[in-house]
Design a binder for these strands. Sequence first.
RNA 1: UGACCCAUAGUGUAAUGGUAGCACUCCGGUUUUUGGUACCGUCAGUCAAGGUUCGAAUCCUUGUGGGUCAACCA
Length: 562
Amino acid sequence: MTEEKRSLNFIEQIIEEDLANGLETSKLRFRFPPEPNGYLHIGHAASICLNFGLGLKYNAPVNLRFDDTNPTKEEQEYVDAIKKDIQWLGFKWDKELYSSDYFMQLYNWAIKMIKDGKAYVDSQTSEEVARQKGTPTQPGTDSPFRDRTVEENLDLFTKMKNGEFEEGEHILRAKIDMAHTNMLMRDPIMYRILKKSHHRTGSEWNIYPMYDWTHGESDYIEQISHSLCTLEFKHHRELYNWFLDQVYDPEKLRPKQREFARRNISYTVMSKRKLLQLVEEGYVNGWDDPRMPTISGLRRRGYTPGSIVDFSETAGIAKRDNVTDIALLEFHVRQELNKIAPRVMAVLDPVKVVITNYPEDQEEILIAENNPEDENAGSREVPFSRELYIEREDFREQANKKFFRLKLDKEVRLKNAYIIKANSVVKDEEGKILEIHCTYDKDSKSGSGTEASMRKVKGTIHWVSIKHAVKAEVRLYDRLFTDEAPDSYKDVDFKDFINPDSLKINKNTFVEPSLKTAKTGDRFQFQRLGYFNIDDDSTVENLVFNRTVPLRDSWAKMQKKG
RNA sequence: UGACCCAUAGUGUAAUGGUAGCACUCCGGUUUUUGGUACCGUCAGUCAAGGUUCGAAUCCUUGUGGGUCAACCA
């Protein structure tokens, strides 16, 4: 065995450097810090795989910390969904924690900062505060309340906490520098009054800490060694460090924030705000709609956790903006499903085949291999009879020799069954083919070992016995957007690119009878068609399948080229 | 008319001063009772201009292009 040495991403390189400079491996600790205000998506999976992957690599704990400092947007429903998604991906967190666990510690530190002259209560309206903030190119101006005495600040802040003021009357601000080139350093807000019930602390608090004040201190409390976030937080690092300086004890580990580029994927959007819009405005049927790039959507669509982890690993981590080709995700899910999905036969667009030389009331049981990629997968029984359905596009009355399927006077093999020859067709008055009359070579039964069964026939097609077939509903998905990067245009709304054909429902599918007992979540390969799974909506009376991803189709490519 | 970040095949990512690799996609071929899988192969890249150096994707300068920053959101 040759040990394949995988190159390190820049985050791992930073960690290796820190280790080389004396950081003990046992001090390594990471965290995944979602805000419980929406569902996780494939972009979050990149962060999850990064942080938990680092935990696995260095045998270090990874905390799951809900960043729940804004009770107006956060809900228990999201907490539950996020936990389920992370577990489904196969990761285990060390501690389940909440920023709200630290409200009291944060409050006490804020008091200390007021006493140190590093924070003050501002009593202006949000408009006034915004106006004084300046712009990226112009410095801000000091608040008239900036130089309140420590006593007055303490008194006001205590009253804020006790609920003696209404929302918007006062805020607590850090006293830094209103002329700083980094706007986040222009006396950032630490607390605002919010008389809202919190999903964990209830009505205990009337003031809630802001992200910047909370996040770094939470990392510090948990002794997170490397706090990894996305690029848009780069500017926050300076403030993160400033806040840390106010409470830092040199005996303790000092967390380090580093930023990586968020993972974008072609033909979809990846912001919670936009995904929420798709849900609320009814473009999709909920957060777990199989067209959504959410973890729950992908799960329902039939994606495996392994394929998502593999995808994240292959796509990598770096610092430049990117749009990763959705084809890479599809490659990984096909790769895994190819190994594990049992093969079955299903006909999506049926046309009737009558085998005229097969006895009317005869039927037989044929043996079909479940998965040629897995010799332990065994085999199953598939019934055969005189009347079958095949795929309408698998027959042409006439075609050139590139067409390997059924045509008049030519032979084709029925998968797992016999070689048949098409003799004639029956059409309606509009010329639509109603029946294809064929004859079969009764010595050609698959697996019988006869000379006839070994004959080389170019084409093999799938089929189901009409008498035994089970009718099912199949949902065929396509990309949700017609543009590679629908939200990359300044003057066009991303919803203008919504693909009107992203969902096609086919209620006229016939599947082989072995599928009758399939259960929600079961994954299959419909031979020659694609990978499908049983949808949550499926019932015994009405089987519902989602197409996870089609098989690669070089025939379709040839057709397209003409 | 500011600060900060980024720039390697179509896409994503390596190479950390010493032969520009890998994966996906695309294209072609072999095998095949799935036009699938597997296997083989082809095409294709260092944003530009200077500089440092024996040697630059890598270091420096300038330019160009892209991104981020003006929520009592995270």
